[in-house]
Amino acid sequence: MNINNYKKIVKKHTKKSNFLHNYLAAFLSGGLLGALSQIIYLSLKNIFSVSSTNAKSYISLFIIFIASFLTAIGLFDTLIIKLRSGLIIPTTGFAHSITSSAIDAKNEGLIKGIGSNFFHLAGSVILYSIIASFVLVLLRVITFG
């Protein structure tokens, strides 16, 4: 079979994803997460008179806790398929990537399994943001003093 025919057949059978639906889901779920955490932040600050830095820390902890828990019991994957970027871009995505890669490698043992796969996906986030921040701080210091 020649390659063009093959490509045509592949194109015919690949499922067309509904872009508009994906966009809406990502926008609404991401926005809702931000708005909800803002509501919790305001109520912690005003009703329970928690200081603003502490309130931010509590909410971050809570979000990471929930994301790791849902990933561990297997619910988060179905949520991500539905809501996509709305859950990948917030801190939930970071927690999800660590927990999922660790839990997949669990039966390979503590060191070779969990230990070496823990930062399998999240390692790149940490590595490149540290390098970028380092270079940018140096750039700022050199240019602006």
Partner: peptide, 15 residues
């Protein structure tokens, strides 16, 4: 917190 919670839940649950 991600390391602590993830490790905790990975030890508790199974894939």
């Amino acid at each position: 917190s991600t390391i602590i919670f993830s490790f905790f839940f990975v030890c508790l649950f199974r894939s």
